[in-house]
């Protein structure tokens, strides 16, 4: 009787310790988020106040040597590059996901999935290097513009977001119940009609999530973009222009900056951060609306 009680209380104690331990882990994750937010904002806000919010966000000139800190070129550069990456990556990604989840045989599926995972595991600097030695010279030969351009960044980012889009779309497509497909085919729809009119709409919230994560990856990518973008702080007017993304702006100049220049780089980080938060909230809201 006594022994039994002992083991029960001992079990309870271990349970207690472990639940505290898990709680501690959760606290550490959330604390790191909070600390990062505080740090970036504390370092960045003073610069935004000193420069002026409007001058900072809508200023077209980035010239630290004469205290011109306008990041509109970088904001637009990031947006354009991301849109281009989506135009390239989303159709290819979704069609690949449809192929491996709906059409391909089991053997082919087993071959493609590990390759896509490998694509996800390639470090971004390798993507950038590939862009620098293959895509940039190719664009240079074709269009005689030096090669480093918005187009090069769009292509590299388009490839980089493929694994994210394929993996998540594939998972959500496979989660669509088998009965949907069987019923559709029983009603006389062809396989393609079934895929595009039944399965894809049923999986749309998952597919949209894939796109959102793809946007996150594209807009946050730094190293690969630095290598192929040319990094001129100007507003790009065509896809053949050189441009600089917000992330590249921070990474390139941080090593040399001090004083207001350095604070302006932190402020660029604040803008990027706010940007991503708004994007995530907006798109999540949109996804919820669409899937209802």
């Amino acid at each position: 009787m006594n022994i039994e009680k002992n083991t029960v209380s001992k079990n309870r104690m271990i349970e207690n310790i472990f639940s505290k331990f898990f709680f501690l882990s959760a606290v550490i994750s959330i604390m790191s988020l909070v600390v990062i937010i505080i740090f970036v904002f504390v370092k960045g806000i003073p610069a935004i106040i000193e420069i002026g919010l409007m001058d900072f966000i809508f200023g077209k000139l980035w010239r630290p040597s004469s205290n011109d800190f306008g990041i509109l070129p970088m904001i637009l550069g990031s947006i354009y590059a991301t849109i281009g990456a989506l135009l390239i990556g989303v159709p290819i990604g979704i069609l690949t996901a449809i192929y491996i989840s709906e059409i391909a045989s089991k053997q082919i599926r087993k071959m493609i999935i590990p390759m896509v995972e490998l694509l996800a595991g390639i470090p971004s600097v390798i993507y950038g290097f590939f862009g620098l030695i293959v895509i940039v010279p190719l664009i240079d030969q074709t269009f005689k513009n030096g090669g480093n351009s918005l187009l090069a960044a769009m292509i590299i980012l388009g490839i980089m977001i493929l694994p994210t889009i394929i993996n998540i779309s594939d998972t959500s497509l496979r989660a669509v119940p088998k009965e949907y497909r069987e019923n559709s085919i029983a009603l006389g729809a062809s396989k393609m009609q079934t895929i595009f009119k039944v399965v894809l709409p049923a999986a749309k919230s998952g597919v949209l999530t894939a796109v959102v994560l793809g946007i996150g990856r594209a807009i946050g990518e730094t190293m690969a973009v630095i290598l192929v973008a040319g990094n001129s702080p100007q507003i790009p007017f065509s896809i053949f222009n050189r441009f600089r993304s917000m992330t590249a702006n921070i990474a390139i100049e941080m090593g040399y900056a001090f004083g207001l220049h350095q604070e302006a780089l932190f402020a660029t980080g604040v803008v990027l951060f706010v940007f991503i938060i708004i994007l995530n909230l907006g798109l999540n809201l949109f996804i919820r609306k669409v899937s209802d």
Binding site: R63, P137, N148, G230, N231, S232, Q234, N241
Partner: peptide, 25 residues
């Protein structure tokens, strides 16, 4: 205040080595 009169669309290379690689290619 002095400021750089560099042409705006100049390609910005990250370090001496990157300048060399760009000029060479």
């Amino acid at each position: 205040n002095k400021f750089s009169a560099l042409i705006e669309d100049a390609l910005i290379a990250d370090g001496n080595g990157a300048v060399k690689a760009n000029v060479a290619s």
